[in-house]
Design a protein around this nucleic acid. Structure first.
Length: 150
DNA sequence: GCCAACGTTGGC
DNA sequence: GCCAACGTTGGC
């Protein structure tokens, strides 16, 4: 089993939205590297840190699990979707997403600031300068170090 | 294949 | 709203 981190802007889709839905499609990813992680890496049962970005307190807010492995992102074919991509042909889809299932919400936000201060998280992809990946792998060591901050 | 211009992400 | 750091696009 592998560990991952997925970013979402809480104004668009928050951990509470996922809690309400139970299971949700992680759609709208339009970056090849992030797509490749979902398509080639994510397996059912993998664990996922849910990260809130572009908000007053960016940080890791809870845990989800992969409920369904990668399949074509339907929003890419929907001309009314903000994620519509006319280059993605349903016969040969460019963009993929997974389904994620709510596991739990942390009692408090483990903030980006706090993550940066934890020596055991040196080298964590999330903290790399200029990192903009919205889906990334997390090592077991980093996963455990984050959990111990809760 | 190079690279300038442009667009996006995301913290601050 | 600013801007650093990328990724993408398109002319050549």
């Amino acid at each position: 089993m592998a560990y991952w981190l997925m970013k979402s802007e809480p104004d668009t889709f928050s951990i509470d939205d996922l809690r309400k839905l139970g299971v949700a499609g992680w759609d709208g990813v339009r970056n090849y590297q992030a797509r490749n992680f979902m398509r080639d890496g994510m397996k059912k049962g993998d664990k996922v840190f849910f990260y809130h970005s572009s908000c007053p307190e960016p940080g890791i807010v809870g845990i989800a699990t992969v409920a369904r492995e990668a399949y074509p992102d339907p929003t890419a074919f929907d001309s009314k979707s903000p994620y519509y991509d006319p280059k993605s042909d349903p016969q040969k889809p460019i963009w993929m997403g997974v389904d994620v299932k709510f596991v739990r919400r942390f009692k408090r936000v483990i903030s980006l600031e706090e993550l940066k201060q934890e020596p055991r998280l040196d080298g964590f992809t999330l903290l790399r300068r200029g990192n903009r990946l919205s889906v990334m792998p997390v090592s077991e060591e980093h996963w455990n170090a984050v959990l111990e901050l809760e």
